[in-house]
Design a protein around this nucleic acid. Structure first.
Lengths: 160, 160
DNA sequence: GCACTTTTGCAACCCGGTTGCATAGGCTCC
DNA sequence: GGAGCCTATGCAACCGGGTTGCAAAAGTGC
């Protein structure tokens, strides 16, 4: 079977001869994509599903491992597309590989949407601390502020 | 002439038949290295000199460009050596290439020595804001804090 | 001068990210 | 329902920053 020929197989909808009404899960996934003007393709639905299934941020390598039948480039471009359309945002946690996490539904990726990211030094997972806004800082005079990246390292609740 | 056979040439000390008293600049460079238990070699003195000559942080590529007769690996290891001995600290400003900046003389690279780094989005230079300590943040319960990386982007005093 | 350690230089590799290009799939219009 | 078009996907190859192995050169102690 060629990859992705039948979306429903991959999304877990039962296959019958007759096309049944859409699975409720897929419906929300679909919505989430179309809301952001992203065409819902098989790979995209799968990737979005992965994001919605877990709290921790996801990197390209994670996706490659999870979907070993999907191509690296496709996954890469899927992430880029999602990012462009502000469905996810990228996180540089200093580990050398970018990770991505779902934006909040109301997110517009403006400075007000910025938040602290947390990297657990044991499990190496990265989380958005959506409730932890980045504190204000005082820059030297003559410096103007644009954006801030703040990554906190430590132990997450599972690892301490 | 083989590279680095005669340190003084590279450090700008006049060459005579008789070895003259050390150049005052080289003396301080020497001191700075030996203080941190680093043997003062030609390359190391040169690299340290580069760090002391400018405020902005320096990356491996910068050094490669500046000293085109020196090998990338040597410069790389020089940076590593300096970092190990806490003469410089590394800065991940999100540009994809690590940069390094001189530690303050009193620095021990403990959490208290952490400070905010500033990346100018125009000239792409990175600075230590040594007088801007990283503000405290409130983590969710059950998260423990280890270290914090905070990079501010904006316009530096030269570029605005 | 000789043996030993450290530093330097060269080559090659690794890994994450990225691009070019050809093919496959889906859509429209007639 | 077939032709043409646009988009998404897959494959291969590349790029840049960082890193390692190994041999030659330089420095050190005797």
């Amino acid at each position: 079977m060629k990859p992705f020929q039948n979306i429903s197989v991959y999304l877990g909808v039962e296959e019958n001869n007759v096309i049944k009404e859409q699975h409720p899960m897929q419906e929300t996934l679909d919505q989430r994509l179309t809301e952001r003007n992203i065409k819902p393709t098989a790979v995209r639905l799968l990737v979005l599903k992965a994001f919605m299934a877990q709290e921790a941020a996801i990197g390209l390598a994670d996706l490659e491992n999870r979907f070993d039948h999907a191509d690296k480039t496709t996954l890469y471009r899927t992430l880029k597309t999602f990012e462009e359309h502000k469905l996810i945002h990228s996180i540089d946690d200093g580990t050398g590989a970018l990770k991505y996490a779902l934006c909040q539904e109301t997110c517009d990726c403006t400075p007000e949407d910025l938040h602290v990211h947390f990297l657990c030094t044991v499990c190496n997972k990265t989380f958005c601390l959506n409730d932890t806004p980045i504190p204000q800082i005082n820059l030297p005079t003559d410096f103007s502020l644009d954006s801030v990246n703040m990554v906190v390292k430590g132990l997450c609740s599972d690892c301490r």
